[in-house]
């Protein structure tokens, strides 16, 4: 059994989970919804083992580093954190239907990693040989995952709010009626960002600490750093917007989606489009 086989099984489980959640939206059958969650959890366990195994494989190859060092590894880890945050929200708040809007993000990541990225285990270049890599990447990605969940919730919010506007104040029927009420969606969006914001803050701080330790400057305005700050500003605006009238509901949902778009640009766009110190994932 190799880690890449396990990654494939996890990807397949997420596919099953997503389809089950879509069927759940259509059928409203509780069992189907449960199947969606179970498939996601099964995938998550396999995924966790796969990451552990890949870590061990890197030791067997004599490199010995955490599997967080290239684009393939970071995308699979990102997918893992998305499912983790989804699991926490699913268990805690029991709104299964959220899975239909969150699991696809994880599936997309896994599918891209499995099909489009080179999965070789490479030795670490000197710049990445530090424990700070671990702290920095884990905190950032947990934050990103919380924002992914918030984005999924905001999309649900906009769909539901749009339908309710169109049909007057009456509750919309059909698939949409499965969604939690817009009040709950708004609240969950806020909760997800409340989890993500401190994690991103920690991610930026650990990144700054590492940069200071390795290069002597905690902040050098390189594009990756700057984009992480942009993301941070957007979510700070989101948090404050809640205290100002007229900025809740739809506007907050839009801000949350903009925040996630900036997150994705920070994570991928900077490496694929712009250039900078973070060679990480540049290949």
């Amino acid at each position: 059994m190799t880690s890449s086989m396990l990654f494939n099984i996890a990807t397949f489980s997420y596919l099953v989970s997503m389809l089950a959640f879509f069927a759940f939206l259509a059928s409203k059958s509780k069992q189907v919804g449960l199947a969606g969650s179970l498939a996601a959890y099964f995938g998550f366990i396999v995924h966790t083992v796969a990451i552990g195994l890949r870590w061990k494989e890197s030791y067997d190859l004599g490199h010995g580093h955490a599997p967080l060092s290239n684009l393939y590894e970071s995308v699979t880890f990102f997918a893992w954190t998305i499912i983790l945050i989804f699991g926490i929200i699913d268990m805690k708040y029991k709104y299964r239907v959220i899975g239909a809007f969150v699991v696809p993000f994880a599936l997309l990541g896994m599918a891209w990693a499995q099909l489009g990225l080179s999965s070789g285990i490479e030795p670490l270049v000197p710049a990445l040989q530090s424990n700070w890599l671990l702290y920095h990447v884990i905190t950032c990605f947990l934050g990103y995952a919380a924002f992914a969940v918030a984005c999924g919730l905001s999309i649900m919010y906009l769909i539901k709010a749009g339908k309710e506007d169109a049909s007057g104040m009456a509750q919309a029927g059909g698939v949409i009626s499965m969604f939690p009420s817009i009040k709950i969606l708004d609240d969950l969006n806020y909760k997800a960002i409340m989890i993500g914001f401190p994690l991103l803050t920690l991610g930026i701080i650990t990144g700054a600490a590492w940069a200071n330790y390795a290069w002597g400057t905690y902040w050098s305005w390189d594009p990756k750093e700057t984009w992480s700050l942009i993301v941070w500003f957007v979510y700070a605006a989101f948090l404050h917007a809640r205290f100002t009238r007229g900025w809740v509901g739809k506007k907050a949902a839009v801000l949350s989606i903009v925040g996630f778009a900036a997150t994705i640009f920070c994570y991928l766009g900077v490496n694929l489009v712009l250039s900078g110190l973070h060679s990480y994932g540049g290949k």
């Binding site: 594009p223 700057t226 984009w227 942009i230 605006a237 917007a241 900036a262």
Partner: peptide, 21 residues
């Protein structure tokens, strides 16, 4: 005012993009 805070946060985010391009 909090409105100023939001405006400043969004302008910092938006203008920061320039230097990354």
């Amino acid at each position: 005012s909090l409105k100023l805070a939001i405006a400043l946060l969004i302008s910092l985010a938006a203008t920061s993009i320039i230097g990354t391009i």
